[in-house]
Design a protein around this nucleic acid. Structure first.
Length: 597
RNA sequence: GGCCGCGUGCCAGAGUGGUCUAAUGGGGCGGAUUGCAAAUCCGUUGCGCAAGCUUCGUCGGUUCGAAUCCGACCGCGGCCUCCA
């Protein structure tokens, strides 16, 4: 039996993921800081988390169960379709995943990357940039944001982040439109942070230094013996200041050099709140300790909740690899010391999932190298979001994937081939075609099983893509794409798809389509609505491309030229489109297919 | 200096003890098709006419057998107090 196994940063091994309650998995992802647009590296990390949560909640995913778990008996009887499962402790989906991602909108981040102003607040930098954009008239029409108000700046970029994320199919963001508690804002949880800091002080895990007006609360790392277990940076091995980002002034009041900030009294700060330690702002790490609990368990009160010894608080936690230390290390220390009855030996999150950084054209992404892209940069260039999504999830999350323009084109073409296959299968279903004994249903036969095994083995998305590509030996060039737009492709119940996929009495085409939908429920790139409006459908198909009115006009002009066999005009228009970066292909009925060159 | 991840063919990227000259896609080459293209489909793509020989960062080791396990080294990426 294949159960989901993941590389756990905490144990540095690939191991079975065993949530406390397999019917309700809690998952927390460190979210974006909203002082700028998210770039494709940010999104790679968020998309890896999205793929994981989509798989966990799907009927394809089987989870191992802790011995003696409460729901163990029931699932074996009712849910499992696999014979061997009855002998082992496991639980088959579908199941609920409570996925929470915070929005870091507190302006205490310092910008050492491109601000240069040695510790200038990121929100202040963002405000200055916005102000410049506003003066230059570069701000989009209808946007009214006051560059002096950090809350407005944060809301502005939060809105843009959600817009990009929706296009890229981040399920969590779409859910958060219905339930805002799934994307909590740090600024709205400062009260909880203060409560947790008070608890930490009361338990001797934190201390206050400095005179009134300049008070600072630090977490005492020596209060938590397990400090260092996630990153390997144990207290005896840490070398103070090796990262070159600590100032002597900040270190002077600490009992131990690794102690970190929980609260800083600073009435002059750009964003500030009242607290028992004066007006000021919270440390960076404390927000996630609070929001991971508040988001995944709405009933919990961070001021009073007590977790029994060694019991995890959440099942799964993700974030970029740069968060491993110090952020996640500190989060563990805070949460265990604040919430666990016995911090020693406690577990905050059971499984830690850290996607690695993305390279672009073989190099580290940086603004100075010119290989720095935000998601919206790519959308603006006409790349379809689904292609960007596939390009970002196609490589194993734990390797340094290389994002390339060529790869983006490949991804767009790949998606279109899959869509053509979906259109073909849909056509056969709609027309109630009989099974063709000469046709190989490669997914139904074994591809689905291979793909599921790959996902169970540390979320191997590349292998899933290979399964979707392989053994597909049919000419998809002549399939009428209108079948892809068939309403049945846009609403499907995954539990039902799973049943159909495993029901031998069903039509082969129907079963194959069910397999395709199941796999795409994880990848999220095939059955996504294209941006194309009704008005452009009569011209043709936009492959990995967002149509623009300008392109549309040229295509119409060219279609008319071809109708009257004016090939000179037709070729001239094709060249013009090529110069704009579009490749076109003539298809049936005077239609064209448009892609990126 | 410490801790962690990764290193596969022209490119991207699977493969974690034998069925591996190594999945899959791209690119290249040949063919079908096309107003010309593009796309699509078929074949081919380490060397050799062949029996056969040789690849998976490098060097060693374990094993009957290694891309796969172990060690060292080299390279890339991340972190060492607030960049996914």
């Amino acid at each position: 039996m294949n159960v989901l196994r993941l590389f756990n940063t905490l144990t540095k091994r690939v191991e079975a993921f065993e949530p406390r309650d397999p019917e309700r998995v809690t998952f927390y992802t460190c979210g974006p800081t909203v002082y700028d647009d998210a770039h494709i590296g940010n999104f790679r990390s968020f998309l890896a988390a999205d793929v994981l949560r989509r798989f966990i909640e799907s009927p394809m995913c089987v989870l191992a169960e802790e011995p003696g778990h409460r729901s163990g008996e029931r699932c074996h009887q009712e849910r499992c379709h696999q014979e061997r499962c009855h002998q082992e402790r496991c639980h088959r989906g579908p199941r609920q995943v409570v996925h929470v991602m915070n929005i870091t909108d507190v302006g205490h981040m310092t910008d050492d990357a491109d601000g240069g102003e040695n510790g200038e607040d990121r929100m202040a930098v963002a405000g200055r940039r916005l102000l410049e954009a506003k003066k230059a008239g570069k701000l989009a029409a209808g946007v009214d944001v006051d560059p002096k108000d950090p809350r407005q700046i944060a809301r502005y970029f939060e809105g843009r982040f959600k817009e990009d994320a929706r296009k890229l199919g981040l399920k969590l963001v779409m859910e958060a439109d219905q339930d805002a508690t799934l994307m909590p804002r740090a600024t709205e949880h400062v009260g909880g942070m203060i409560k947790v800091i008070e608890r930490l002080i009361a338990r001797g895990a934190a201390y206050v230094v400095g005179d009134v007006g300049r008070r600072v609360v630090y977490f005492s790392v020596q209060a938590f013996p397990a400090y260092g277990s996630l990153s390997g940076n144990t207290l005896d091995k840490l070398r103070e200041g090796a990262g070159g980002r600590v100032s002597a002034e900040n270190q002077s009041g600490k009992r131990h050099p690794a102690d970190f900030l929980l609260w800083k009294e600073d009435p002059s700060h750009i964003m500030k709140w009242a607290s028992p330690w004066g007006e000021g702002y919270p440390g960076w790490h404390i927000e996630c300790s609070v929001m991971s609990v508040a988001g995944t368990d709405a009933r919990a009160d961070v001021g009073t909740m007590v977790v029994p010894d060694a019991e995890p608080i959440i099942d799964l936690h993700s974030g970029g690899e740069d968060n491993i230390f110090p952020h996640h290390e500190c989060e563990i220390a805070q949460s265990c010391c604040a919430f666990n009855a016995q911090p020693r030996g406690a577990t905050y999150a059971k499984m830690w999932f850290h996607p690695r950084f993305l390279l672009v054209e073989g190099e580290k992404m940086s603004k100075s190298k010119g290989n720095f892209f935000t998601a919206r940069d790519l959308f603006a260039k006409g790349h379809e979001p689904a292609a960007v999504r596939l390009e970002l999830i196609k490589t194993h999350y734990r390797s340094n994937a290389n994002f390339t323009e060529q790869g983006l084109k490949d991804s767009a073409a790949r998606i279109e081939r899959w869509r053509a296959y979906a259109a073909f299968l849909t056509k056969q279903c709609v027309e109630h075609a009989d099974d063709d004994p000469g046709f190989t249903f490669y997914l139904t036969a074994e591809g689905l099983g291979h793909a599921i095994r790959a996902l169970c083995t540390d979320l191997n998305t590349a292998r899933v893509i290979a399964e979707l590509d392989s053994k597909q030996s049919m000419d998809v060039s002549n399939v009428e794409r209108k079948y892809f737009e068939h309403p049945s492709n846009w609403e499907s119940d995954l539990g039902e798809e799973w049943r159909v996929a495993h029901d031998p009495s069903q039509n082969g085409y129907r079963r194959e389509l069910a397999c395709l939908r199941l796999l795409d429920s994880v990848l999220g790139v095939i059955f996504t609505s294209r941006q194309s409006s009704e008005s452009v459908r009569d011209i043709g198909l936009f492959i990995g491309v967002e149509p623009s009115p300008e392109v549309e006009a040229k295509l119409r002009e060219r279609r008319d030229a071809r109708a009257r066999k004016d090939f000179a005009a037709s070729d001239r228009l094709r060249d013009e489109l090529a110069a704009m970066g579009y490749a076109i292909k003539d298809a049936k009925d005077g239609k064209v297919e448009v892609r990126r060159k």
